[in-house]
Design a binder for these strands. Structure first.
Length: 596
DNA sequence: TGTGTCTGCCCC
DNA sequence: ATTCTGC
DNA sequence: GCAGAATGGGCAGACACA
C-alpha cells in the first residue's frame, strides 16, 4: 500500500525547475495567488512577484536602506543630508535608478492607488489589531509610517531591496482593493518595525525625511562631477529620475539634451503682488479662473499638459483643434484653459473640472460634456518656436513671437503699464469684467522653468468676509500630530437657533493653534475620529475666493480657498452672519460672473 | 442597481 | 489654491 | 528667498458593499 501525499513545494520545484515556473504552472491550472500562498505558506507578495517574472538581482537587504533613511531623518543641515545621500549613491551594489528612486521616495511613476484607507486595512490584516486602535494611533502619531512601526513585531531583517522595490512596482497591476491589501499586509508581516515605517511611507509617496529634491540633485552632481545647474536643467526637461540617472554620462552628454515639443516642462509660477517688486513698464494681463495648460505642437502632432504634467489631449479635443491653427511648424505655448457658455461668458471653475479632471472618457460621454461645457484658451507665453528655444529671451521678445503664432481670440488680454496708476486702472477694469484678477510681469524677464518668481505677480481682490463660529476642531497630521490643525465653521439660521456648516479653515500659526487648544478642550461637547465638537462660542471672520453650492455642508454652500482674517472676541454666536447673507453673497458673484 | 468610500505626484 | 516654517 | 509641509474647495472613476 502506497501512501499518497500532496506534492510539497520542494517536489514541485524539482519537477518544474524553479519556483517561478511552479507559480506560473499553478496559476495556469486555475489556482489563485491566495490559494498558493495559503497552501505552501508563502507570502502573498512573493507569489505576485513570481507571477510577474521576478528575478532577484542583488541580495542587498532593505534594512541597509532604512538605516540610511534613519540617518537622513536625524541630520539637520542640508549639507549633512547631502553628504549622507552622496555616501548612499556611492554604493555599487545597487543600480543608480534604484538608488535615485529610493532617495526620492518615488518607486514608480504610475499611480499606486494606495492611500490611508488601504494602509489601515493592511495594517489590521498584518497584525490582527482592531481598526479602532489603528485609527487611535494615527491620531496620536499623525502618520501611518510611524503607526506601522509601532504595530509590527520585531524580527530579523530579511527583506531585500529588490523584493521591496519590485513589490511596489507591481502594485498598479493589482486591480482589486483586497489584492492590494493582501499584498501590502504580507509585505509588512515580513518586515521589521523600521522597514515597515519606510515601506508605508514609500507607498504613500512621502518619506518625511526633510530634504528637497534639489539636495538629491546636488549630491548626484557632486558624485559625478557635473554642474548641479546643468543636472537641474536636464531634469526639468526630461524628468527628474531620467535626468539624475543620466549624470554618469557626464557634462558633454548632458549638455546635448535639448528642449523638444512633446516633452513636458515644469511651468513658471507667480508670487502674490507686492508693489515694491514691480519694475515698469510692466506687462499686465487678465488672470482667468481656469486651469494651466502647456500646449505642444510639432507638425500635426499635439500634446497638452496640465500644471503637473498630466497629458490631457484626449479629453480636450477642441484645444487640440485650436493648437492645429497655430501658425508654426512647432511650438510650446503656455496658456490657461477656461470654461465658457454659449454666449462666450465665463463659467464658474466647478464646470471646468468636469472637463479637465478626467484622463480619458468614452467618446459618447466626451461628446456630451463638450456640449455642456465649452472650452477656450487664453495664451500668455511661448517657450519654443520652430526649433528655437525662447526661454532665455525677455518676455517682451517672446510676446512678439506669441502674437505671430496664436490667433488674437486665443490670447490673454492685457496692456503694458508705465506706472502703478495704470496698473490699478486695468486691475479694476478686470474685476468689473468678472475676471479673477490680473498678473503683472516683468517685460525683461526670461521664462524660468518650474520656479515661482517675483517677475510674475498675481493680484486678486479681497472678497467679502463672513463672521462664523467654530463648531469642530480637527486633529492635525504629520508634524502637527497631537495638535488641532483646522476648524469646521458654521453660520446662523436667521430665525431658529440652529447652525449650518460652511466649510473648514486652517493655516493658522502654530502659536495661535497651541493657545486655542486648551480653550477648545474646555468647551468640548463630543468627538469622532476626525476631531472634537465644541460649544459654538469662538467667533472668527473668514474670507474666501468664491462661494460654491455643495452637498458637503449643511448650509448648502462652501467657501473656496477659505481663510481666517481674525478672531472676533467682541462677537458672540448670536451676532454672527446667517445663511441668508451667504446666499446673497453667492448670488452677488453671478452679477460679476454671468452664467448661462 | 444604487450608494458610499477612497484615491488622484487631480485641478484650483 | 494658501499659509507657515525651517534652512 | 525658497521649497516643503501642512491645510482648504471641487470633480471623476473605480471599487466595495448592501
Amino acid at each position: 500500500m502506497t501512501l499518497v501525499r500532496p506534492p510539497t513545494l520542494r517536489d514541485l520545484i524539482k519537477a518544474y525547475g524553479s519556483i517561478e515556473e511552479v507559480v506560473k504552472h499553478l496559476i495556469n491550472s486555475g489556482f489563485t495567488p491566495e490559494d498558493i500562498s495559503w497552501k505552501f505558506k508563502l507570502p502573498y507578495y512573493l507569489i505576485r512577484l513570481y507571477m510577474e517574472g521576478f528575478k532577484p538581482r542583488s541580495r542587498v537587504l532593505f534594512s541597509t536602506v532604512t538605516k540610511v533613511y534613519d540617518r537622513l531623518a536625524l541630520l539637520r543641515s542640508r549639507r549633512g543630508k547631502e553628504t549622507e545621500l552622496l555616501k548612499f549613491f556611492k554604493r555599487e551594489d545597487l543600480s543608480l535608478d534604484v538608488k535615485v528612486r529610493l532617495a526620492l521616495g518615488r518607486i514608480t511613476d504610475e499611480n499606486l492607488k494606495i492611500g490611508e484607507g488601504i494602509i489601515e486595512k493592511a495594517l489590521c490584516a498584518a497584525t490582527g489589531v482592531a481598526p479602532k486602535r489603528v485609527r487611535d494611533l494615527f491620531i496620536d502619531y499623525g502618520e501611518y509610517g510611524e503607526v506601522a512601526s509601532m504595530l509590527i513585531r520585531p524580527k530579523e531583517p530579511k527583506l531585500t531591496v529588490d523584493e521591496v522595490y519590485e513589490a511596489i512596482r507591481i502594485i498598479p497591476k493589482l486591480e482589486r482593493v483586497y489584492e492590494r491589501v493582501l499584498h501590502i499586509s504580507s509585505l509588512l508581516q515580513n518586515s521589521t518595525p523600521d522597514e515597515a515605517r519606510y515601506i508605508v511611507r514609500l507607498l504613500l509617496n512621502d518619506l518625511k525625511l526633510g530634504y528637497r529634491q534639489e539636495t538629491v540633485t546636488s549630491a548626484i552632481a557632486r558624485l559625478y562631477g557635473v554642474p548641479a545647474e546643468l543636472l537641474e536643467r536636464v531634469s526639468a526637461i526630461i524628468g527628474l529620475v531620467e535626468g539624475l540617472t543620466m549624470a554618469p554620462k557626464g557634462e558633454a552628454e548632458l549638455s546635448k539634451i535639448r528642449i523638444r515639443p512633446g516633452q513636458f516642462l515644469k511651468p513658471q509660477l507667480a508670487h502674490i503682488y507686492d508693489p515694491d517688486k514691480v519694475s515698469y513698464p510692466a506687462r499686465v494681463e487678465y488672470k482667468y479662473d481656469g486651469s494651466r495648460l502647456q500646449i505642444h505642437r510639432w507638425g500635426s502632432q499635439v500634446r497638452l499638459f496640465s500644471r503637473r504634467g498630466i497629458e490631457k489631449s484626449s479629453t480636450l479635443p477642441e484645444v487640440v483643434d485650436i493648437a492645429m491653427g497655430f501658425k508654426a511648424q512647432s511650438c510650446i505655448v503656455d496658456c490657461e484653459v477656461i470654461a465658457v457658455g454659449e454666449d462666450g461668458t465665463f463659467l464658474p471653475f466647478q464646470y471646468l473640472l468636469e472637463r479637465t479632471v478626467p484622463r480619458e472618457l468614452p467618446t459618447e460621454e466626451l461628446r456630451e460634456r463638450m456640449r455642456k461645457v465649452r472650452l477656450t484658451i487664453k495664451a500668455f507665453d511661448i517657450l519654443y518656436l520652430n526649433g528655437v528655444v525662447l526661454l532665455d529671451m525677455p518676455l517682451r521678445e517672446r510676446r512678439r513671437f506669441l502674437l505671430e503664432v496664436v490667433p488674437a481670440e486665443y490670447l490673454a488680454e492685457g496692456v503694458d503699464c508705465e506706472d502703478e496708476v495704470a496698473l490699478m486702472r486695468f486691475y479694476n477694469e478686470a474685476l468689473k469684467r468678472g475676471l479673477e484678477g490680473v498678473i503683472v510681469k516683468d517685460l525683461n524677464s526670461p521664462y524660468e522653468l518650474g520656479r515661482r518668481t517675483y517677475t510674475w505677480l498675481k493680484i486678486k481682490p479681497e472678497r467679502d468676509t463672513v463672521d462664523c463660529v467654530i463648531v469642530k476642531a480637527l486633529y492635525g497630521k504629520g508634524k502637527r500630530a497631537g495638535l488641532y490643525s483646522s476648524f469646521l465653521m458654521a453660520v446662523r439660521d436667521p430665525k431658529e437657533r440652529k447652525l449650518y456648516t460652511i466649510g473648514k479653515v486652517s493655516n493658522l500659526p502654530d502659536e495661535v493653534m497651541a493657545s486655542l487648544s486648551s480653550k477648545l478642550e474646555r468647551i468640548k461637547i463630543g468627538e469622532d475620529k476626525e476631531g472634537i465638537y465644541v460649544k459654538p462660542m469662538i467667533v472668527a471672520e473668514v474670507t474666501y475666493q468664491e462661494i460654491q453650492e455643495t452637498d458637503e455642508y449643511t448650509s448648502g454652500y462652501a467657501l473656496r480657498v477659505p481663510k481666517i482674517i481674525r478672531f472676533r472676541e467682541d462677537k458672540t454666536v448670536e451676532e454672527i452672519d446667517d445663511v441668508d447673507k451667504l446666499r446673497r453673497l453667492y448670488e452677488l458673484q453671478y452679477e460679476r460672473y454671468p452664467v448661462k
